[in-house]
Amino acid sequence: MFDTMTLTKIVGSLCAALLILLLGKWAAETLYHPGGHGGGEQAYVIDTGEEEVAEEVDEVPFETVLASADVGEGAKVFRKCSSCHKASEGDNAVGPYLYGVVGRATDSADGFGSYSGALSQVVEAWTPESLNAFLENPKGYAPGTSMSFNGLPKIEDRANVIAYLDSLDN
């Protein structure tokens, strides 16, 4: 009952079904995207009489954002950092402890010896402004740093974290 001819028919029908599927896909793409994938010009443009004007975003100075920073929100954002850093003095983890980091010299956490040296070439002490620039893009601010964190894109989050870190040591 199950011979070579039956197996040949099954394989042939599967190949035919696959061929029909591929040809159908090709025909549908040709029908719905005749010139490629949106590469053509728009057929009709409605003139509204106005030119498109890009919104100008007024950038608020960091000092202003830092002055209105929320320490409680900073503690929430610090949870992202807590996988590698601790907020208690002398408690190093993968990264150095961050207790008293605001105003502290770079590469100077007691008991932490795994500094890459990239930070001390860029900045001497952790001011709020240098912390802001570093937390925005650590790899871009200090190329060669061993910190693998991508950064905090929102200026409010950075200001809140810096205010939280600054509040730890009064």
Rank of each mutant, 00 (worst) to 15 (best):
D3S: 14
D3P: 14
D3A: 12
D3T: 10
M5N: 11
M5Q: 13
T6N: 13
L7I: 14
L7M: 15
T8F: 10
I10A: 08
V11F: 13
L14I: 13
C15W: 13
A16P: 03
A17C: 12
L18M: 12
I20T: 05
L21T: 14
L23S: 08
L23M: 12
W26V: 10
W26R: 15
A27F: 10
T30K: 12
T30W: 10
T30N: 10
G35V: 00
G36V: 01
G36C: 07
H37F: 06
H37R: 09
G38I: 02
G39P: 05
Q42K: 14
V45G: 08
I46T: 09
I46W: 14
D47A: 08
T48G: 15
G49W: 01
E51M: 02
E51S: 05
E52H: 03
E52D: 01
A54Q: 01
A54F: 01
E56M: 03
E59A: 12
V60Y: 11
P61S: 04
F62V: 12
F62G: 14
V65N: 06
L66Q: 06
A67I: 02
A67W: 00
S68K: 01
A69N: 00
D70P: 07
V71C: 11
G72A: 15
G72C: 13
G72H: 13
G72Q: 15
G72E: 15
E73C: 07
V77C: 06
V77N: 06
K80L: 14
K80P: 04
K80V: 14
C81P: 05
C81R: 10
C81V: 01
S82K: 10
S82I: 05
K86P: 08
K86C: 09
K86T: 09
G90M: 13
D91A: 13
D91E: 15
N92R: 06
G95I: 11
G95S: 07
P96E: 07
L98N: 03
L98C: 02
L98Y: 08
Y99R: 04
Y99W: 06
V101S: 06
V102G: 03
R104W: 03
A105M: 09
D107T: 05
D110H: 06
D110P: 03
F112Y: 15
G113N: 05
S114Y: 02
S114I: 00
S114F: 04
G117A: 04
G117C: 01
G117D: 05
A118F: 08
S120A: 10
T127L: 05
T127H: 04
E129C: 07
E129V: 13
L131H: 11
N132R: 05
A133M: 09
F134T: 10
E136I: 07
P138F: 02
Y141E: 09
P143F: 03
P143N: 10
G144N: 01
T145V: 03
T145M: 02
M147Y: 06
S148I: 03
F149W: 10
N150K: 14
N150F: 06
G151K: 05
L152M: 14
P153E: 05
K154T: 02
K154D: 14
E156W: 06
E156Y: 02
D157W: 04
R158F: 12
R158K: 07
N160M: 02
V161A: 00
A163Q: 03
Y164F: 14
S167V: 00
S167G: 11
N170W: 12
